[in-house]
Amino acid sequence: MMAAVGEPPELKKFSGMQRAAALMLSLGHEQGGPIWDQLTTEEIKELSSTISQLGRVPAVVVEYLLVQFSGEVSSMSTLHGSYETTERLLEGIMPTDKVKEIMEDIRGPSGRTMWDKLSNVSEAVLAGYLKNEYPQTVAVILHKLRPDHAARVLSELPREFATDVVMRMLRMDTVQKDVLVQVEQTLKSEFMTNLSRAQRRDPHETMAEMFNALDRSTEEAMLEALDDKAPESAERIRALMFTFEDLANLLPGAIQTIVRNCNKRELALALKGSPEDMKKVFFNAMTERAAKLMRDDMAAMGPVRARECEEAQTALVRLAKSLGDRGEIMLVDPKSDDAMIY
């Protein structure tokens, strides 16, 4: 058994990550292998990067780390791996924000990410699944969703069933953690898994999103090239793309939300390069004074490059799609005149 070693002064020069790197380097492949197997890909990359830049580590530091490690292990009758012990371990070797990111990822259904994903599922699809569940289970799930999304799901459920769910929500106390975990596990294993299988994305949708992010000239050049080689694909991509002109189809409240959240110089640039009817859509969403100030700003700009206007228009489209993804506005789905996406 190794003798106790006091903390060497040289240890202060090494960060938590560097200490972990030195320990793993000293353990080598055979002893350290089982530990490496428990790390995520990102953790392995970060730890490996630290090892590669570690340089010389004094023997006294290595000895201290090994003695400390072996002492902690030998003093335990058993090891208990859990989210909490994992989080404490990671906090000792990496920044807090990184620990939070990793824990949210590995917690899976018990983390915030699961409910974020569920909040992005359309109310019709979610209600179609929930109407076959116990009302108490549905009450727990709706309790965890954003109020606006929960309301839309509730309106899609059969009236008598929805009333039962509401009554249970009214009588609901704090949901026990083990019940919540069980519900989340079921959602992940049954609903989300089946949903992902059923919603294999059309590659044209992915390409349409990518083309939306291109500058106008590159976008047009790519689509023209596709017109020659795959005209049907080019036509489908065009139909799926959400463009600046599509913003004119949004409800006035959605336009107001975009105006509140956008960069005002970008808005002025975008409108300067747009037709008059498009300008009216945005000016009608502003106060009379704000609209006048915006017109004055546009006039004061003088001549601007068409490319700058196109880039500003693309930025507004991205903002609109981001607000739509967060459920703050409704976007008209370009694939259908009637359908709405949230």
Rank of each mutant, 00 (worst) to 15 (best):
E219K: 11
S274L: 09
A339M: 12
E220D: 14
L271V: 14
H149Q: 04
I237P: 00
D296V: 01
E224G: 07
D105C: 05
R88G: 15
V153C: 01
T218K: 13
E276Y: 11
S74Q: 11
V60Q: 11
L269V: 08
V332S: 07
T186F: 06
T40F: 09
R307N: 15
Y129H: 05
R107V: 02
A59N: 11
P231T: 12
C262D: 07
L89A: 09
A3H: 09
V179W: 06
P58G: 01
I35E: 09
K117W: 03
R19Q: 13
E160Q: 11
T174Q: 09
E184D: 05
A127G: 02
G108V: 02
G28W: 03
K272N: 00
R318H: 11
L223C: 04
D37M: 14
E30Q: 08
E63S: 00
A221W: 08
A270F: 04
L269R: 13
A213D: 03
Q38G: 06
M278G: 01
S15R: 05
V121I: 10
D296Q: 04
D246P: 04
Q185L: 12
M298F: 10
W36L: 10
R289S: 12
S233C: 02
M169N: 00
L54Y: 10
L126Q: 07
T218E: 15
H143V: 04
L223A: 03
R216S: 15
M76P: 02
E63N: 02
V5I: 07
L316F: 12
S233E: 01
D173K: 15
A299P: 05
Y134R: 14
D148M: 10
P303L: 13
I329M: 03
Q199N: 10
R152W: 06
E205P: 02
A208T: 03
E91Q: 11
D202N: 03
A320V: 03
S274K: 04
E308C: 15
Y64G: 01
G71F: 01
Y134K: 14
